[in-house]
């Protein structure tokens, strides 16, 4: 009898952590970035789907920390540490940050994809978490799925073969 592998869905501006064989999945990343932090030897992993680069953009006091690159990565880091992950073993894989629309003149919001990728990279570097692999930029949407058992990130785009990083 084969055991069904459960799938955990990560929504927009959402964050989930798993410490079992459950896969993590988020759909339809455009300018948003999907961030996976994982401890391969513990098979613990977390995924966030961020929309915006920095929580300083928030225009009200309380905000959803999973929406911004800086706060989402901090929370992923803390949750994985709590789950027993060793901060020296934590690695990251990221995907997304496309520029879906080309308008001239390009406004700052139009460049939000590349800005999200920059912010994610900066935050991970400051926490000394190496980016093991990435598939970012371009002009296409992505659906990503992370398997904590293999540390593989599966990336689907429209009209292209699935890639694994």
């Amino acid at each position: 009898m084969t055991k069904m592998i459960q799938m955990i869905k990560v929504g927009i501006a959402d964050l989930k952590v798993t410490k079992s064989s459950e896969k993590l999945r988020t759909s339809g990343l455009g300018s948003c970035v999907g961030i996976v932090l994982y401890d391969g030897s513990l098979q613990a992993a977390g995924m966030a789907h961020i929309m915006l680069p920095d929580s300083s953009l928030a225009r009200k006091g309380e905000f959803n920390r999973s929406k911004y690159a800086d706060t989402a990565i901090e929370d992923l880091f803390i949750k994985l540490r709590r789950a027993g992950a060793d901060s020296f073993r934590l690695k990251a894989k990221i995907a997304g940050g496309a520029q879906m629309f080309q308008f001239t003149p390009a406004s700052e919001m139009m460049r939000i994809g590349p800005r999200n990728v920059e912010a994610v990279t900066k935050k991970l570097t400051s926490l000394r978490i190496p980016i093991e692999a990435q598939d970012v930029g371009g002009q296409s949407g992505r659906t990503i799925e992370f398997n904590p058992l293999t540390s593989n990130l599966h990336i689907k785009t429209v009209n292209k073969e699935e890639i694994i990083i």
């Binding site: 339809g28 915006l52 928030a58 225009r59 879906m100 308008f103 429209v158």
Partner: peptide
């Protein structure tokens, strides 16, 4: 702008301006 792509990747862009004040 014409796009043929995943609904989430496209529509989430429409939410960006709103997302700084609302969930």
């Amino acid at each position: 702008s014409l796009n043929i792509d995943m609904a989430g990747a496209i529509l989430s862009f429409g939410l960006l301006e709103l997302s700084v004040v609302s969930d």
